[in-house]
Design a protein around this nucleic acid. Structure first.
Lengths: 222, 222
DNA sequence: AAATAATTGTTAATAAAATAACATTGTTAT
DNA sequence: ATAACAATGTTATTTTATTAACAATTATTT
């Protein structure tokens, strides 16, 4: 009996950090390091060593005292947790600036997760290849998703088309969605949805800058 | 005695939702609606009505029973909380695909928050204007930030230049940073930092897709 | 050989966020 | 007039996430 599925109670934040640890670890490995301490990982990620150790405890990995964690082993374990054995295919819907940015960020970085198709409605883009990713007509979305077995889609279309696009993707059998439009979408419970709204994030930064400014004024004028 | 500063204990998540509420409200207003119920806001944002009411309670806004919340008033209150009276200026550092995407997303959407400068090292880009935003040489960053009083910067340079860029921005007097590179940066405590890592987010989606798939297999095969 | 220091792994405590429970209050219907 | 209903506002509870505390262990120093 395998113990895949053991990891289904990991905190969401831990999952995100594991992905980041892996990237840091890959970098360390490429520099010839073989072991690493929790406080080293912590420094790279700007978090506390305790948090690192706790995350690693949760995934059941043990380091050796005074030597730290074996980088190769840890990378491999994180891979077992995050990656799908067979790999997952990803599509970008909307090949505008953001879509292309994502392709550049991602191209060839993870072999278990690859962007293999882009979709757009602009005839000038259809038929082109960007960074190795072919751009298809949005009308062929379902066909290609089914044919290629694409399971994840990133929505980078204009906000007004977001929900329509999401519906089509769900109908096409997509299992995970990453929505970069500011328009919240909704999906059946069997689809995992992650929303990220750039405008909100910027406004949040603005709010905290304002707060810091007010604080300063408070301190200097009273 | 003013009560600005009253809002400095709002939960981070509430701040983010307020920004989203405002956007939804502006849309409703433009459609001629004058009042809105908590459950309507909730439906738009795919959250619960309780969450909405709680957030509004925290900012001290009261609706009227059976009529809901006055949209104009609420928009204005959220503006008082999030926006700086004088407005804040934003710079984009790195005018690649992501930088340009952000400019498109944002251009002219918030008059209290405007992207007024872009920086890049590519001579082909320097001197151009993109969506009304001039692109300057990265060597002039400090000069222009100081001259224009820019307080927020969005980092969209290649990962390997992230920390260097951040240092320069901090030295130039930036108060808030939004880092879109996958490389964590660090800044003095008087600078507000928000990091967003696209690769991690995608890997997180991949993890949950994997989990859902395993669950299904579990259910159908056992 | 003993003492010290450095590090892991785990449990306990705290803090932050979301959810539930429910009291209150107008409005409508009977 | 009274009952039923639909909404808000608030307190209490639960859940999630982080941080702190500390025991255990091994390497190093004296």
């Amino acid at each position: 009996m395998e113990d895949r599925g053991t990891f289904d109670h990991l905190p969401h934040k831990t999952i995100a950090r594991l992905s980041q640890y892996r990237r840091a670890l890959l970098l360390c490995l490429s520099r010839g390091k073989s072991h690493i301490f929790s406080h080293e990982i912590a420094t790279i990620q700007h978090i506390t060593p305790v948090q690192v150790r706790r995350d690693l405890m949760l995934i059941g990995y043990s380091g050796t005292l005074r030597k730290g964690y074996n980088i190769k082993e840890l990378i491999s374990l994180i891979g077992n947790i995050i990656d799908s054995e067979e790999g997952l295919k990803v599509a970008i819907v909307g090949m505008g600036n953001l879509g292309r940015a994502l392709i550049n960020y991602f191209s060839g970085k993870r072999h278990k997760l690859s962007i293999i198709a882009g979709f757009d409605t602009n005839p000038d883009k259809i038929g082109n290849t960007m960074n190795g990713v072919p751009c298809y007509s949005a009308t062929r979305m379902r066909e290609i998703i089914e044919k290629e077995g694409i399971q994840i889609a990133i929505i980078t279309v204009p906000a007004e088309n977001a929900s329509q696009t999401a519906n089509e993707l769900v109908a096409a059998g997509i299992k995970g969605l990453l929505n970069y439009t500011p328009k919240p979408i909704d999906v059946p419970e069997y689809v995992y949805l992650e929303e990220y709204d750039m405008i909100t994030t910027l406004e949040k930064v603005a709010f905290y800058v304002k707060m810091k400014t007010l604080e300063e004024k408070g301190i200097t004028t009273i």
